[in-house]
Simulated scan of single mutants.
Amino acid sequence: MNDPKAVDTLLEGQPELLTTDEICTLMRVSQGTVLRWMKEQDLPVISVGPKLRRVQLARFREWLIQADEIKD
């Protein structure tokens, strides 16, 4: 389990709904990585259009806290 305080510090000041681009920037990963997390690692996503996705900040926080327990 990742340190909740460290996750909270990382997410401080972020909007309530994150775009995939915002997650890419925040986590320093590619768009493909974020899309893979959504598809294969169950990153919770809200579809707002055919290619528009948003992630609720609270759900992203919980996913990050549990992220080191995710198995490929």
Rank of each mutant, 00 (worst) to 15 (best):
W63F: 03
E12D: 11
C24V: 02
A58H: 13
Q41W: 09
D3F: 01
R53A: 09
V55F: 02
I65E: 09
G32R: 12
R28I: 01
V34E: 00
A6H: 12
P44C: 07
I23M: 01
E22P: 02
D68S: 13
R59N: 10
W37Y: 09
L57S: 07
A58P: 04
R28V: 03
V45P: 06
A67H: 06
N2F: 00
I70D: 12
T20Q: 04
E62H: 13
P15N: 10
P44Y: 06
F60R: 11
C24I: 04
P50S: 09
E40F: 14
K39Y: 04
V55N: 03
P50V: 04
Q14L: 12
S47W: 12
L57F: 04
R53K: 14
K51E: 14
K5A: 14
P15Q: 15
V7Y: 05
D3L: 02
A6L: 15
S30Q: 12
V45W: 06
L10I: 01
L43Q: 00
D42W: 08
T19R: 10
Q56Y: 13
V34F: 00
A67R: 14
A6W: 07
M1L: 08
A58G: 03
E62V: 10
L43W: 01
L52V: 12
I65P: 07
R36V: 00
D72H: 12
T25D: 03
S30H: 15
A6Q: 14
R28F: 00
E22F: 10
E40W: 14
W63E: 06
T9W: 15
R61G: 01
R61A: 01
L18I: 07
G13T: 08
P44S: 11
L52A: 07
S47L: 11
M38Y: 06
K5V: 08
V55Q: 04
M38H: 09
D3Q: 04
E69S: 12
T33W: 03
I70G: 07
S47V: 08
P4D: 09
E40H: 13
D68C: 05
Q66F: 10
E22C: 05
E16P: 00
T33F: 02
F60I: 08
A67Q: 09
S30N: 11
Q56N: 13
A6R: 10
I46V: 15
R54W: 03
G49F: 09
L43C: 01
L11M: 04
L64Q: 11
T9R: 15
D8N: 14
N2A: 10
A6F: 07
P4Y: 05
L52G: 02
K71W: 09
E12S: 11
T19S: 12
V7M: 08
E16S: 11
M38I: 11
R53S: 09
